[in-house]
Write a protein that binds this DNA or RNA. Sequence first.
DNA 1: GCCAACGTTGGC
DNA 2: GCCAACGTTGGC
Length: 155
Amino acid sequence: MAKKYWLFKSEPGEFSIDDLEKCPGKRTYWDGIRNYQARNFIRDKMRKGDGVLFYHSNADPLAVVGHCEIVKEAYPDHTQFDPDNKHFDPEAIQKEPRWFMVDIKLKEKFKTPVTLKQIKENPKMKDFRLIQRGNRLSVMSVTKSEWDEIIRLSR
DNA sequence: GCCAACGTTGGC
DNA sequence: GCCAACGTTGGC
């Protein structure tokens, strides 16, 4: 299957691209996704080698700050079973995990983040999911041309 | 801090 | 299965 592209949102106060850069091997698991649409992307669609844009939400600046690669495909998100974790799901059962995660590895932290403002002003990005009205998905798909444009803007 | 948009929950 | 109430997200 052809390489696909995604965008992950993260609040830098929770987990920033700098935090990712400090992780061993610059890789981490992407836990805490508790939305079914996002879960289905993770569980059913993401494949090793797919590209991931890393976006800082609730931040200054609001921007795509780098890109990553999926290095491990979906497996159960252990935080759903951990009562001490803020993503604990009391309804989740071990035999049939409800929530999944992938592992990502940082490929590049942009020298120039691509801001939300830039994206909104760019006619080529008018269909970008991130800027669609009321879009609250924390994981979404990105087309190849959108990916290429973001990379170009970061240069 | 506000609030629009959206997902989820639960009573009926 | 409808839908009002509620909680959350996230830009502003």
